[in-house]
């Protein structure tokens, strides 16, 4: 097994304000550019920084064999997207991308995994260095834990979901419990602020 791969949560100094209980997200005071990266789905279709342009994207890091938190989050995101679709124009409905930080186990199934939760969800993964570039840019974290006697290993990972704007920059983080209505409300407000910033 490889040495523990991880990105320190403090490696990027984001100006994220303090979170209050039941806040569904935090808007960044200053957007953070997403660097070049190349990931791919299980059919080798690439997913790169250019795929972030001109629409909103929600990026969630996780792993397929996550029994509790990941399916719960993806289920809530599915509901939150449906709620958001009631509040924003169709072309402003965010696209959800699930990025597995466990390519060794998930490279062949990550796309089917994401599709299980919604037919429009994308599932991608890739080389460690590519994943880590995105982890670092979004101030996220993961760590592969040592395997148990059965060979199963847990992967600790950020619970927050990164919200990337149509300009390809990190704009906000969504936080658990991802209440669908409140999350949709947050995303709609974020989009209003974004349009204001661009004077539209």
């Amino acid at each position: 097994m490889k040495p523990l791969a991880y990105a320190l949560a403090c490696s990027v100094g984001l100006s994220v304000g303090p979170a209050i209980a039941q806040v569904q997200g935090v808007m960044l005071d200053a957007p953070v550019p997403i660097p070049a990266f190349t990931l791919a789905d299980q059919a080798d279709q690439t997913f790169s920084a250019t795929d972030l342009a001109d629409h909103w994207t929600l990026v969630m890091f996780g792993y397929n064999s996550c029994p509790d938190v990941c399916p719960f989050t993806l289920g809530n995101l599915e509901a939150a997207i449906a709620e958001t679709a009631l509040r924003v124009r169709p072309d402003n409905v965010p696209r959800v991308v699930f990025i597995s930080v466990d390519p060794a186990r998930d490279a062949d199934t990550v796309t089917d995994y994401a599709l299980f939760f919604h037919p429009d969800f994308r599932g991608v993964t890739g080389a460690r260095v590519q994943i880590d570039a995105l982890i670092e840019a979004t101030d996220s974290f993961y760590r592969l834990m040592p395997p148990d006697p059965s060979g199963y290993y847990e992967v600790q990972h950020s619970s927050a979901v990164s919200v990337i704007g149509p300009d390809g920059q990190l704009r906000a983080k969504l936080q658990p419990p991802f209440d669908p209505g409140a999350t949709a409300e947050f995303l709609a407000r974020l989009q209003i602020n974004y349009r204001r910033e661009f004077g539209q």
Binding site: P67, D112, Y113
Partner: peptide, 10 residues
């Protein structure tokens, strides 16, 4: 119900 490729359930 978990996606078919997932072998750890809750």
């Amino acid at each position: 119900v978990a996606p078919p490729m997932v072998h750890s359930h809750s």
